[in-house]
C-alpha cells in the first residue's frame, strides 16, 4: 500500500528551557529520598521510586513523542498573498504543538484525534515555498517538560506567495523606443526596477488615432497631428492584439527593498492587464532570466513569488528553463 503523503520525522530534538524543571525534579527526588532513607520507611522510599519513574518519564516523554512523531502536509493551497492568512492541513501521527516559523503563523496543535489539523500561515513576504519550516513541540505524556524540534515540512504542491499589490510605479514618460525588432531597453523608474517596452507594429495602415503611451515616435502621423493639433499616430488595420509590454523585474538582493519593488511590479502588471494590455514579464529565478507572458494578476504574483535577484547566469551552463516561449507560459505551473 503506498502512501500519498510525504511524511517527515523530527531530528535534533531539544528540551525547551530544561534548567528549572530539572533542578526542581532533582531537588524533589533527592529530598524525598533523604527523608525516606533516613526515616527508615520502605513504603515512603517505594513511593519515591514511583515518583522518580513518573517524573523521568514525564521529563523524557516529549523526546520519545517527537522521536516517533511523523508529520505530513495533507493539503495546501498553491497560491497565497503576502499579508493574508492561508490555511494548510497537517496530519501528525501524535499530538504535537506546531508553530510555523517560515512563513510564520500562530501556533496550533495537530495530530491526535484531529485528522487533519488546520494550520494558519501568515506570510509576511512573497516567496516560493516547496516546504515550510515548523517548530514542533511536545510535552507528552504528562505535560511536565516541553521538547521541540525544527522540521521542514514539504508541501503537496509548491506554495507561491505573491507580493502584496504595492503602489503602481509612476509610468515613465521619457522612454526611448526604437523601431527595430523587439528590443528591451533598460530604464530606471521610481521602483528602481528595470522596465522596458517591447513593441511591434504590423499590418496595413488604415488611418490615424491618438497617441498612446508606448507608441513609437516613428509611427507618428505628422499631417494628422498638424491637422488635429494633438499627437496622432498611424493606425494599422490588422487587429493583432495590442503588442505586449515587456517588463523586467530586476530585483535587488536586499529583502525589504526587493519586496517593495516586487509589490510595485505586481501593481504595474495588474494595472496594465486590467487596461487590456498584454504583459510579458521578465524575472530572474535562481539567477536565470525567465521571460513569459502573464495573463492576470495571479500569474504575475506566482512569477514574482519565485523571482529573485539577477545572478551569475551563463546560458551555456545553465540547464534551466531560460526564456519561456510565450505560448507555453500560460500553462506554466501546476493545474489546480
Amino acid at each position: 500500500m503506498s502512501e500519498t503523503l510525504d511524511w517527515v520525522r523530527c531530528r535534533r530534538i531539544r528540551p525547551v528551557r530544561p534548567g528549572g524543571t530539572l533542578v526542581t525534579t532533582v531537588a524533589v527526588l533527592l529530598g524525598w529520598e533523604a527523608v525516606a532513607h533516613n526515616s527508615g520507611s520502605g513504603w515512603v522510599q517505594a513511593l519515591g521510586a514511583g515518583l522518580a519513574g513518573v517524573l523521568l518519564v514525564g521529563l523524557g516523554g516529549g523526546w520519545f513523542a517527537l522521536r516517533g512523531a511523523r508529520l505530513a502536509c495533507s493539503s495546501s493551497p498553491a497560491d497565497g498573498v503576502a499579508g493574508l492568512e492561508l490555511r494548510i492541513e497537517v496530519a501528525a501521527s501524535t499530538r504535537v504543538r506546531v508553530r510555523p516559523l517560515e512563513p510564520p503563523g500562530p501556533e496550533a496543535f495537530a495530530g491526535g484525534e484531529d485528522h487533519p489539523s488546520t494550520l494558519v500561515l501568515l506570510p509576511t513576504h512573497r516567496g516560493a515555498y516547496g516546504s515550510i519550516a515548523l517548530e514542533i513541540g511536545s510535552a507528552a505524556p504528562f505535560g511536565l517538560m516541553w521538547w521541540s524540534a525544527r522540521v521542514d515540512l514539504p508541501l503537496g504542491a509548491e506554495l507561491l506567495v505573491s507580493p502584496r499589490t504595492g503602489r503602481e510605479a509612476a509610468w515613465p514618460t521619457h522612454l526611448a523606443y526604437t523601431g527595430e525588432q523587439p528590443e528591451v531597453r533598460a530604464i530606471t523608474d521610481i521602483t528602481e526596477s528595470r522596465v522596458g517596452y517591447h513593441r511591434h507594429i504590423g499590418g496595413d495602415p488604415a488611418g490615424a488615432r491618438s497617441y498612446e503611451h508606448g507608441d513609437e515616435r516613428r509611427h507618428v502621423h505628422w499631417p494628422a497631428t498638424a491637422h488635429v493639433g494633438d499627437l496622432m499616430v498611424r493606425h494599422h488595420e490588422i487587429s493583432v492584439p495590442s503588442p505586449p509590454v515587456t517588463l523586467w523585474a530586476d530585483l535587488p538582493e536586499d529583502g525589504e527593498e526587493s519586496e517593495r519593488m516586487a509589490e510595485g511590479v505586481l501593481a504595474t502588471v495588474s494595472s496594465l492587464v486590467s487596461r487590456g494590455r498584454r504583459v510579458m514579464l521578465g524575472t530572474f529565478e535562481n539567477g536565470a532570466p525567465v521571460l513569459a507572458m502573464v495573463a492576470d494578476r495571479r500569474q504575475a504574483g506566482r512569477r514574482l513569488a519565485r523571482a529573485g535577484p539577477k545572478g551569475p547566469w551563463h546560458p551555456h551552463e545553465h540547464t534551466g528553463p531560460g526564456i519561456v516561449p510565450p505560448s507555453d507560459a500560460d500553462q506554466a505551473g501546476p493545474a489546480r
Partner: peptide, 20 residues
C-alpha cells in the same frame, strides 16, 4: 508512559539501598 514509569520504579526499588 505508566508502564515506563513502573519499570523505572522497579529498577529504583531494586537499586536503591534499603532505608534505615
Amino acid at each position: 508512559a505508566g508502564a515506563g514509569a513502573l519499570s523505572i520504579t522497579a529498577l529504583a526499588v531494586l537499586v536503591l539501598p534499603a532505608p534505615k
